[in-house]
């Protein structure tokens, strides 16, 4: 017994006291990952953001930033921002309601397993396939559109949105498909916070004469607020950076990711070079602001978890 206790620290000290040569050999183990991340994460990210500061001949310039004054680019950022904000707010509220409904369901039960998997598929896998689903639902030949036509609404909101043609192929038409992956993402990110609500708090509230209404207004909502707004930001970022669904539905520009596509496939719209890089820079700035806010809120939220 005593010998077992004394050997353990002995092993630790010998482990810590390896010679510097051994140590440097161990360091080598980190090299493959470091090289990989450097070549395929650091370099592309730096190139993407940095390329906005160079002319097509390679000289440093700030002139490309004038692209931000281009009305078309500004309109793209504006559309991206309102689309992200709208789908984030609606998605967060609906997702939170679903999380509320899931409270108390057994963590390892079939219901949770079903909801978790379905949420992951829709939130992380969808892209092009979700666009297909919405074409089959709200496109010209879509299930719902045709059903409305058969009801006598030959011109309805889906096949002629504000006299501009099929809703789904315009920016406002992205709201429904985006919600289709925003709500599941909210479920995935907000559920852990909701599960952090302790039953004892409910009991304490009841002993002090509180109702379920006071439980939510005085305990539940204040505690969940940081997590809720954190998830809201994550949803915003998710919609802001999403590309595949929009690209499958809309062939022109309209939001920033689609504007980047236009710039990469043909150098037209704006009269300065490397506009894709400038747009990438703009997106990264927005994302950094969002993620800083997110990590600050996450720190507050984690106080009540576990």
């Amino acid at each position: 017994m005593t010998s077992a206790v004394t050997t353990a620290p002995a092993t630790t000290t010998s482990g810590a006291g390896t010679t510097s040569r051994r140590r440097s050999v161990v360091w080598l183990g980190l090299v493959p990952f470091a090289i990989y991340v450097l070549l395929f994460l650091a370099v592309p990210a730096a190139l993407a953001v940095g390329s906005g500061f160079f002319t097509s001949s390679g000289a440093f310039t700030l002139a490309n930033l004038s692209a931000f004054a281009n009305p078309q680019i500004l309109a793209g950022f504006w559309s991206s921002l309102w689309l992200s904000a709208l789908t984030a707010v609606i998605g967060a509220i609906l997702g939170a309601i679903v999380c509320f409904a899931l409270m108390g369901a057994r963590r390892d039960g079939p219901l949770r397993s079903l909801v978790d998997s379905a949420s992951s598929v829709l939130a992380q896998f969808g892209g092009v396939m979700l666009a297909f689903a919405f074409i089959a639902t709200f496109g010209t030949q879509g299930l719902i559109t045709q059903w409305l036509v058969s009801l006598g609404l030959s011109s309805n909101v889906f096949n002629d949105f504000e006299n501009g043609g099929v809703l789904l192929y315009q920016i406002p038409g992205l709201v429904l498909p985006y919600l289709y992956f925003q709500v599941p993402l909210m479920v995935l990110t907000f559920l852990p916070a909701m599960e952090g609500l302790k039953p004892t708090w409910g009991e304490a509230n009841a002993t002090l004469g509180g109702t379920r209404f006071t439980y939510w207004t005085r305990i539940g909502m204040p505690i969940l607020a940081p997590a809720f707004f954190g998830s809201l930001i994550l949803l915003f970022a998710n919609a802001f950076s999403s590309y595949a669904t929009a690209a499958a539905l809309i062939s022109q520009g309209g939001i920033v990711p689609l504007a980047i596509k236009q710039q990469l496939t043909s150098e037209t719209v704006v009269g300065v070079s490397n506009v894709a890089g400038v747009l990438a820079l703009g997106m990264v700035i927005v994302m950094i602001v969002l993620m800083t806010a997110y990590s600050a809120l996450q720190r507050r939220a984690s106080r009540w978890q576990k």
């Binding site: 609906l94 409904a101 108390g104 219901l111 719902i144 439980y215």
Partner: peptide
């Protein structure tokens, strides 16, 4: 008095959201 919804509330919410979300897949 806890945070959990009653089973009826739970199934109304989940049933409604589930029904809406299955529509594009059925389409």
């Amino acid at each position: 008095y806890g945070a959990e919804p009653s089973p009826v509330t739970r199934w109304i919410i989940l049933g409604f959201v589930g029904a809406v979300f299955i529509v594009p897949i059925l389409a």
